[in-house]
């Protein structure tokens, strides 16, 4: 069983070599004519004011937290879905309870305005 994962490991090595190749090649091949203006941060011709790592919208953070919750719960449903054929009626009830809890969480976030993009 573990043996099969060696295949994936080998593919990752090949992919890494394939991705590193162009980076090395371009370092050797491409012309280098550095200048002060060229090395500035690109901003349509004018110089950048201040740091670029600025404060950003709170909502991105909220969505990230919600994502962690929902993604983990989705993964819990996978083994259930695979073995559903062999489980009885009770598995359905259990899943519905689980999903209702999921939906209550979503409804709460919705009602509190966490999903509203201001």
């Amino acid at each position: 069983m573990v043996y099969n994962y060696i295949f994936i490991g080998l593919l990752i090595l090949v992919a890494a070599a394939f991705a590193a190749g162009p980076l090395v090649a371009v370092a050797l091949l491409s012309p280098k004519k550095r200048s002060a203006t060229k090395s500035e941060t690109y901003e349509c011709g004018v110089l950048t004011v201040g740091d670029s790592w600025v404060k950003f919208r709170m909502q991105y953070y909220l969505y990230a937290i919600l994502f962690v919750l929902f993604d983990v719960e989705t993964v819990f449903l996978y083994p259930w879905a695979v073995s559903y054929g062999g489980l009885g009626f009770f598995a359905l009830i259990e899943m519905i309870i689980f999903v209702v809890m999921l939906l209550v969480g979503l409804a709460y976030a919705w009602a509190r305005g966490a999903l509203r993009w201001l």
């Binding site: 670029s52 790592w53 600025v54 994502f67 989705t74």
Partner: peptide, 27 residues
């Protein structure tokens, strides 16, 4: 890493978008 406001915004938008659509995709 680009230290550019356009890049920063693009990266933020993209990550929020990709993680949001991953949930319905998985479901």
């Amino acid at each position: 890493s680009s230290n550019n406001k356009y890049s920063f915004l693009g990266g933020l938008r993209s990550s929020a978008q990709i993680i949001s659509y991953e949930i319905p995709m998985g479901l």
